[in-house]
């Protein structure tokens, strides 16, 4: 079992759009997948049309598998199950703080799923918090969508610094370009520069696309649409590259 997170300190960069599509593609490839929504906004949960249970709380999440199993929901797609999130998750940091070994709680919880799933995918809220630190230790790969803009790159540098400071394995961080607009001169310039000079960046990138935006209305991963679009192809390429990294 491998754990993949979609994370960035910055909000609104395409974390959720990415992980939702990868979850679908991984399941379609035959992997048994659990998509674990850790963001109190519950956007990933929403994309899969799942209503959360009022009884599901942050406390229960931290108690581990025994308390969680009954909240796991089957998606409309084969092999893909969802552990939804709800607003109560906003207090996760306070709860984590009370625990001993507070940075490794999530890692330990996921261990009990070793035999049940091939992949656990995490949709993460932005900012650096105790929850995100937990994610850094739990995940095998951390996908970092980055919009080709100066501010966005700055937050990526901040993240790198944090990893260095905390001595977390740098190799877990997998940056890739997100919401790339070919028509914007600045985007193309930064994109070229990054791909040429930073070997850590994945070769595939997600273009800015109205179809991806519409996912909020259709409530279905764009990759699950029958018609092929540039956006769908971009997620397919991304998944292909991630699969190679998993091996």
């Amino acid at each position: 079992m491998k754990i993949i997170a979609s994370y960035n300190i910055k909000g609104g960069v395409g974390k959720t759009a990415t992980i939702v599509n990868l979850a679908y593609l991984a399941a379609a490839d035959g992997h048994k997948v659990l998509l674990c929504d850790l963001d109190p906004q519950g956007s990933a949960t929403f994309y899969f049309r799942i209503r959360t249970h009022k009884k599901q709380t942050g406390q229960k999440l931290l108690r581990g598998r025994k308390k969680l199993d009954k909240f796991v929901m089957e998606s409309d797609f084969e092999n893909l199950e969802i552990l939804p999130a709800n607003l109560s998750y906003r207090s996760l940091d306070i709860l984590l703080n009370k625990e001993t070994k507070s940075k490794h709680i999530l890692k330990n919880i996921f261990k009990s799923y070793q035999k049940t799933y091939d992949l656990i995918l995490l949709d993460c809220p932005p900012n650096i918090t105790l929850l995100s630190e937990n994610i850094f230790y739990a995940a095998d790969l951390i996908l970092v969508p980055i919009i080709p803009s100066t501010l966005s790159i700055r937050t990526y540098d901040q993240l790198l610094d944090f990893f260095k400071q905390e001595k977390i394995k740098r190799s877990k961080l997998i940056p890739f370009l997100s919401m790339v607009e070919k028509r914007k001169k600045l985007h193309t310039e930064i994109t070229e520069d990054l791909l040429n000079h930073d070997k850590h960046f994945l070769r595939s990138m997600i273009p800015y696309s109205a179809n991806i935006e519409k996912m909020g209305i259709n409530r279905k991963p764009i990759a699950a649409e029958i018609r092929s679009t540039a956006a769908k192809q971009a997620y397919l390429d991304l998944w292909q590259e991630v699969t190679e990294l998993l091996q």
């Binding site: 899969f48 049309r49 799942i50 209503r51 409309d76 409530r219």
Partner: peptide, 10 residues
């Protein structure tokens, strides 16, 4: 056939 709830979720 699929039976859907109010969210149009199967």
């Amino acid at each position: 056939y699929t039976v859907l709830d109010q969210e149009k979720k199967t």
